[in-house]
Computed example of a mutant assay.
Amino acid sequence: MKILLTGCSGQVGYELERSLQGLGQVVAVDRSRMDLADLDQVRAVIRAVRPGLIVNPAAYTAVDKAESEAALAYRINAEAPAVMAGEAKKLGAALVHYSTDYVFPGDDPAPRVETDATAPVNVYGASKLAGEQAIAAAGVPHLIFRTSWVYGMRGKNFLLTMLKLARERDELRIVADQHGAPTWSRTIADATALTLARAGSPASEAGAGWWAQHSGVYHLSSQGQTTWFDFTRAIIEEAGIECRLQPITSADYPVPARRPQYSVLSSQRLMEQFCQLPHWRDALGLCLR
């Protein structure tokens, strides 16, 4: 099976290029070869590669900037996945796509399950939800993995920012009233590969049956939950950095995009059907080691 992987220079895409090896011929492209803002280029690349599976971690992820660049966020997060789904259906291929905890409003302090009502509170979340809906409407075999608070040792993310600031400053003020589950990019990639190893090609009889049975939305985030404040405390403890932390509220740190106060995802459905997921603290320790 030929696998087209988008966004291979991003933190999840980089890990996926490694994890997907052995499942098929991986054709990995970054924005220079397939810019999701250019829908004609998206179509052209898919038609040239003719994959049996498209894996799409590429996305517009600048949450605050999306408030002033809504059209671009929707083009990359909603319109491009819609094009991928349409092209995949024509080829008899399947699509793996990644979404976010930000599709939920975060006003209920209980882990969200896949069937809970969505109601994004910012443009980024709304654009990702529109992408989910476009894929489902296309009728293509698909897996949509919603994840949360993604970090890794490359790219721009909370972990790398906190490591840098903690080494530069004596004290950091960190939001302590938003709850979620930090998820290592390698956890996402490895869980994806373990799932796809069971799936097979949608072009085969067995594979087509698997995709027909399992297509849909799954939550894929680390187990447990924490706050940005406690996540930061764990980061500096694991890294052996001395830095004072001061807890603050969301109101003390105003940003353009509103954040969900509670966006913990229940990954029980994925773990029952595909594979186990680690506790966030265990994954963080492994990542830093």
Results as ranks from 00 to 15, higher is better:
Ala191Cys: 07
Ala191Glu: 06
Thr192Ser: 03
Ala193Trp: 01
Ala193Ile: 00
Leu194Val: 00
Thr195Trp: 04
Thr195His: 01
Leu196Ser: 08
Ala197Gln: 13
Ala197Val: 04
Ala197Glu: 12
Arg198Leu: 15
Arg198Ala: 09
Ala199Trp: 10
Ala199Val: 14
Gly200Asp: 03
Gly200Thr: 10
Gly200Ile: 11
Ser201Gln: 00
Ser201Cys: 07
Ser201Asn: 12
Pro202Trp: 11
Pro202Thr: 10
Ala203Lys: 14
Ala203Ile: 02
Ala203Gln: 14
Ser204Thr: 15
Ser204Cys: 05
Glu205His: 00
Glu205Gly: 06
Glu205Phe: 02
Glu205Leu: 10
Ala206Gly: 12
Ala206Val: 14
Gly207Val: 03
Gly207His: 11
Ala208Glu: 11
Ala208Trp: 08
Ala208Phe: 03
Gly209Tyr: 11
Gly209Leu: 13
Gly209Phe: 12
Trp210Ser: 01
Trp211Asp: 04
Trp211Met: 07
Trp211Lys: 05
Ala212Phe: 06
Gln213Trp: 12
His214Val: 12
His214Phe: 15
His214Asn: 15
His214Lys: 15
His214Cys: 10
Ser215Pro: 11
Gly216Leu: 09
Gly216His: 14
Gly216Tyr: 14
Gly216Arg: 14
Val217Gln: 01
Tyr218Arg: 03
Tyr218Gly: 02
His219Lys: 05
His219Ala: 04
His219Pro: 03
Leu220Thr: 03
Leu220Ala: 05
Leu220Met: 03
Leu220Lys: 01
Ser221Tyr: 06
Ser221Lys: 00
Ser222Gln: 05
Gln223His: 07
Gln223Met: 09
Gln223Trp: 01
Gly224Asn: 07
Thr226Phe: 08
Thr226Ile: 06
Thr227Arg: 10
Phe229Tyr: 15
Phe229Cys: 05
Phe229Asp: 04
Asp230Met: 02
Asp230Val: 01
Asp230Gly: 00
Phe231Pro: 02
Phe231Tyr: 15
Phe231Thr: 08
Phe231Met: 12
Phe231Arg: 08
Thr232Leu: 06
Thr232Glu: 04
Thr232Arg: 03
Thr232Ala: 13
Arg233Phe: 06
Ile235Lys: 11
Ile235Asn: 10
Ile235Val: 15
Ile235Arg: 11
Ile236His: 10
Ile236Val: 15
Ile236Glu: 07
Glu237Phe: 10
Glu237Pro: 04
Glu238Pro: 00
Glu238Asp: 09
Ala239His: 11
Ala239Ser: 11
Ala239Pro: 06
Ala239Val: 08
Ala239Met: 01
Gly240His: 10
Gly240Cys: 09
Gly240Thr: 02
Gly240Tyr: 07
Gly240Ile: 04
Ile241Gly: 07
Ile241Phe: 00
Ile241Tyr: 03
Ile241Cys: 08
Ile241Ser: 07
Ile241Leu: 09
Glu242Ser: 15
Glu242Asn: 14
Glu242Arg: 15
Cys243Gly: 09
Cys243Leu: 00
